[in-house]
Simulated assay, not measured.
Amino acid sequence: MAASLRLGESRIPNLCRRAKITQAELARRLGIPRQTLYKVNKRIRDLSLEQAINAAYILDCKVEDLHVIVHGTRTE
């Protein structure tokens, strides 16, 4: 069995509150619709790497802080 990682719950709403910006403002600054950010928060969609890096910069955090990271194992 090999170790695997996957994205869990979004921390973006809490990070926005901490940074004192709305999620709508974050979406605007990322150049994405607010509905897309909603889908990211619900784990329906993922940010691109570029969007995740920009979001982390805007929210003054690391990319890995945007979501809970779930550790597990998978069989090959």
Score class of each variant (00 low, 15 high):
residue 66 L to D: 04
residue 5 L to M: 00
residue 60 D to W: 05
residue 1 M to Q: 01
residue 49 L to G: 14
residue 72 G to V: 07
residue 41 N to A: 02
residue 6 R to S: 06
residue 42 K to P: 03
residue 53 I to V: 11
residue 39 K to F: 11
residue 6 R to L: 02
residue 34 R to C: 12
residue 44 I to T: 13
residue 41 N to E: 12
residue 72 G to W: 14
residue 59 L to H: 03
residue 34 R to N: 09
residue 10 S to H: 03
residue 75 T to K: 06
residue 76 E to Y: 07
residue 40 V to N: 03
residue 35 Q to T: 07
residue 64 E to D: 14
residue 15 L to V: 01
residue 67 H to L: 08
residue 1 M to K: 01
residue 47 L to Y: 03
residue 3 A to E: 08
residue 63 V to P: 07
residue 57 Y to E: 15
residue 22 T to W: 09
residue 15 L to W: 04
residue 38 Y to W: 11
residue 55 A to Q: 08
residue 71 H to F: 13
residue 73 T to H: 12
residue 71 H to T: 12
residue 22 T to N: 10
residue 9 E to C: 00
residue 2 A to D: 14
residue 64 E to T: 09
residue 53 I to S: 05
residue 32 I to Y: 04
residue 42 K to S: 05
residue 7 L to A: 06
residue 10 S to V: 10
residue 42 K to E: 09
residue 75 T to L: 03
residue 1 M to D: 04
residue 33 P to L: 11
residue 66 L to E: 05
residue 33 P to M: 10
residue 73 T to V: 13
residue 14 N to H: 11
residue 76 E to H: 08
residue 38 Y to E: 10
residue 35 Q to I: 01
residue 49 L to S: 14
residue 71 H to W: 12
residue 21 I to G: 01
residue 17 R to F: 13
residue 46 D to H: 07
residue 25 E to D: 03
residue 44 I to E: 15
residue 48 S to E: 14
residue 41 N to L: 00
residue 33 P to E: 12
residue 28 R to P: 01
residue 58 I to N: 05
